[in-house]
Nucleic acid binder design. Structure first.
Length: 358
DNA sequence: TTTTCATCTCAGACCACATCGATGA
DNA sequence: TATCATCGATGTGGTCTGAGATGAA
C-alpha cells in the first residue's frame, strides 16, 4: 500500500457522488443513472423495496469515471469499455486476456463490503485461481481495497496474510467519508444482468457476440440494444480458455438496456456511463491507464493451497525434469507403508488446516 | 535516433495420481 | 433413506520453454 500516495495524480480525481457531491463515487446505479458513494448508495437503495432492486456495478478501476463493463481475469480488474479497449489492445498478449461481463449486484455496496470482509476475502483469493468463482471475483476485488482504504486496515492485519497481494489494487478511497450506519441486507443472488451500456461507439465495431463454447469467435454480431443474451460462460468448463480474438471483439456488451426510474426497461441505450468515459479522453485517460498498468505490474498473486493432502502427495512424488513421473513398484510400496502406518500423522501441516485424510 | 542482438524475467505447460464430488445401484 | 461403488474432474509442485522486456552496441 506504500504506492498509494503516489497514485493520486493531480486532476485525476474520481467522479464525485451525484448525491452528496463530496465523496467519490463507488458504484453506478443503472436505474437511476447515478454515480453514488457507498453511503449514499446505502441510504438510497435501502430506503424501500423497489429501490433495493436497482442494479449497481462498481466503478472502473482505471479511470474511475465510468461503470465497469468487463472483468479481466488475467488482471483481476474491472474495467469500463474504454479502458478495456485501451489496455487490451496494447499487445497480442493483452488481447488474449479473458474477460467477462461484470455482474451487477443488488445489495448495498456497503453491505457487500461488510459481509465479504468477514468471510469473503479468502474466497476472493482463491477465486483468482478458480474461475468457478468468477461472479465473486469482481465485487470482491473491487471492494476489497476500497474496504481496506476506508477502514485503514493493513493487509497484514487481516486474517489472511496471503491476501496481501490482493490489496495492492489501490483505489482513490471512494468510501473514505462513508459512515458505517446502514441496514443489513439479506444477500440476494442477482439475476444475470447486462453490463453497463456502450454508446457513442459503432455497435458493429465493439459489440460482438462471443461464445466461448466454440473455438472460433462467433461471426454473428449482435446489436447491443436488442440482445439480452449472455453468451459468455463462467462455468468451470471455461477454465483456462483464452480467447484468441482481439480485445473488443472478444467481449460482447449485449445488454444495452435503459431502465427508467420505475425499473422498466425502455430498450433505449443508456448514455451517461460511457459518455462520461469518453469525456475522459486524451492526457487524463493516458495517465490513468499508465497508472493502472504500473499497479498491475507490481501486483503479485500468491498461490492458495486448497488441499494440503494433495500438496503433500505432490511433494513426495517422483519427478523427471520437474514433471510428475510414474512410481516404481518399490516406491509405491514404501509410500503405502508411510501413509498407512501412521494415519493422519503425515499431514500434520496445520498451516493449511484442511483435509485430515489418511 | 533507430536497429539489432544478447540477456533477463516471468507466465504457462507439462506430468502422475490421490482425492473430491456427483451419480447410480 | 442410507450405504456403497464407480467414474470423471480436480489440484498439486519442480522444471522447462517461449515470449516479452530491457539494455547495450
Amino acid at each position: 500500500m506504500g504506492l498509494q500516495a503516489g497514485w493520486t495524480l493531480p486532476g485525476l480525481t474520481p467522479k464525485p457522488c451525484d448525491t452528496c457531491k463530496s465523496s467519490p463515487s463507488a458504484v453506478f446505479c443503472r436505474a437511476d443513472s447515478a454515480y453514488l458513494c457507498l453511503t449514499c448508495d446505502s441510504k438510497i437503495h435501502c430506503a424501500n423495496k423497489l429501490a433495493s432492486r436497482h442494479q449497481r456495478v462498481w466503478m472502473c478501476e482505471v479511470c474511475e469515471q465510468a461503470p465497469a463493463a468487463v472483468t479481466c481475469k488475467a488482471d483481476a480488474a474491472a474495467l469500463c469499455v474504454t479502458c478495456d479497449a485501451d489496455i487490451h489492445s496494447a499487445n497480442p498478449l493483452a488481447r488474449r486476456h479473458e474477460r467477462v461481463p461484470v455482474e451487477p449486484f443488488l445489495d448495498s455496496a456497503e453491505s457487500i463490503v461488510k459481509s465479504t470482509s468477514a468471510v469473503g476475502l479468502s474466497d476472493a483469493a482463491s477465486s483468482l485461481k478458480n474461475d468457478d468463482a468468477d461472479s465473486l471475483l469482481i465485487p470482491n476485488l473491487n471492494f476489497s481495497s476500497k474496504f481496506i482504504d476506508a477502514l485503514d486496515i493493513k493487509p497484514g492485519d487481516m486474517f489472511f496474510p496471503e491476501m496481501e497481494s490482493l490489496f495492492e489494487l489501490d483505489y482513490p478511497n471512494p468510501i473514505q467519508n462513508s459512515s458505517s450506519g446502514m441496514d443489513s441486507v439479506v444477500p440476494v443472488q442477482p439475476d444475470p444482468i447486462p453490463p453497463p451500456p456502450v454508446v457513442n461507439q459503432p455497435p458493429r465495431e465493439n459489440c460482438f457476440d462471443i461464445d466461448f463454447c466454440r473455438n472460433k469467435l462467433s461471426s454473428s454480431f449482435s446489436y447491443p440494444a436488442q440482445s439480452i443474451s449472455q453468451s459468455v460462460s463462467s462455468s468451470s468448463l471455461d477454465v483456462g480458455v483464452v480467447p484468441d480474438g482481439n480485445s473488443l471483439s472478444d467481449i460482447s456488451y449485449p445488454f444495452i438496456r435503459n431502465v427508467n426510474h420505475n425499473g422498466v426497461e425502455s430498450g433505449v441505450a443508456a448514455a451517461p456511463a460511457t459518455a462520461t468515459a469518453i469525456q475522459l479522453s486524451g492526457v487524463d485517460r493516458e495517465a490513468r491507464v499508465m497508472r493502472y498498468r504500473e499497479k498491475r505490474k507490481n501486483r503479485k498473486f500468491q498461490k492458495t493451497i486448497r488441499y494440503a493432502s494433495r500438496k503433500a502427495y505432490a511433494e513426495t512424488r517422483p519427478r523427471i525434469k520437474g514433471r510428475f513421473a510414474k512410481r516404481t513398484e518399490t516406491e509405491t510400496e514404501v509410500m503405502d507403508r508411510i501413509f498407512n502406518s501412521a494415519p493422519g500423522s503425515y499431514i500434520a501441516d496445520a498451516q493449511y488446516g484442511v483435509v485430515p485424510t489418511f
